[in-house]
């Protein structure tokens, strides 16, 4: 295989995987052995090997979320050995490679845990709460006219860069999963500050933060206590500064918006 390391020895691993039939049943950890895992495999490819084995044995494969496997879609979401997306910083589960583990390792794999993220099955959780928060205000309305020309609205480079930094959030939910309070504030603040920084976002600026925070609370996420585990585990490096920006936006909106209710 091109690009693979010929000296890399295949690994045998013990997996402790959370198995849960559906939302209404209790789950438990089940032990599996996987053999001849190449260190060049991604973590999800290693799980593919496990599922092939299970299928051959007539067992049900482990359900887990994945889509692009390129680190940009935010679908993969595994809590690996007590860390969101595993031990490697700045990495989604799909971009975590088995070379980060050693032969004979035991790896515990769990789904995101949060009251607002119910487990669908095994390692797959329902993150539609995030969708409803975005629906509450994480957008800009362009209701009329043709496609605007590029660069029609001048935006200073440093503002554009900061907005882009916030926009890199892939909504994977690692922030919620690793937060002791199961707070979604890093996710919500990334969207709030991105749109607050850009002129296109100013029309709905105050109503947006009010509605998104209200929806966030309604979904049952906890309150931020500035622990910082979210930012430490975030695969794209969304910073805590965004939460401070959201707090400012929120208090300012509450004090000055025209929404009395």
């Amino acid at each position: 295989m091109a690009g693979s390391n010929p000296n890399a020895k295949p690994m045998n691993l013990t997996l402790k995987v959370w198995r849960q039939r559906n939302r209404n049943t209790e789950g438990r950890i089940v032990d599996y052995q996987v053999k001849d895992i190449s260190p060049d495999m991604s973590f999800l490819e290693m799980l593919d090997v496990l599922n092939e084995d299970l299928l051959r044995q007539g067992e049900e494969p482990v359900a887990f979320d994945h889509d692009c496997r390129e680190g940009i879609c935010g679908s993969c979401n595994l809590f690996i050995n007590g860390r969101a997306h595993g031990p490697e910083a700045g990495t989604t589960t799909c971009q975590l490679h088995m070379r980060k583990f050693s032969d004979g390792d035991t790896i515990t794999i769990e789904p995101w845990r949060s009251a607002a993220f119910p487990v669908n099955k095994d390692l797959s959780v329902d993150r539609s709460a995030f969708d409803r928060i975005i629906q509450a205000g994480g957008y800009i309305s362009i209701n009329t006219g043709g496609t605007p020309d590029a660069n029609e609205i001048p935006i200073p480079k440093d503002i554009a860069d900061r907005a882009f930094e916030a926009a890199t959030c892939i909504a994977c939910g690692a922030c919620v999963a690793s937060c002791k309070n199961s707070s979604a504030m890093l996710f919500v603040s990334a969207k709030v500050s991105q749109l607050a920084l850009l002129p296109q976002g100013h029309v709905e600026r105050k109503t947006r933060v009010e509605n998104m925070v209200a929806q966030m609370d309604k979904e049952g996420f906890g309150a931020c206590s500035n622990i910082g585990s979210c930012a430490a585990e975030c695969p794209v490096g969304i910073s805590l500064e965004n939460i401070a920006i959201m707090n400012r936006e929120y208090i300012n909106a509450k004090a000055t918006s025209n929404n009395l209710a």
Binding site: G82, R83, E110, A115, N181, S182, G220, A223, S229, A232
Partner: peptide, 23 residues
């Protein structure tokens, strides 16, 4: 916040690797 965490705790959770004990 405890309620938001949900009923099932992590079997393995190395929060000491991403945050301070006091926090």
């Amino acid at each position: 916040n405890k309620k938001a965490r949900g009923g099932q705790a992590y079997v393995v959770n190395h929060s000491e690797q991403n945050s301070q004990w006091a926090s």
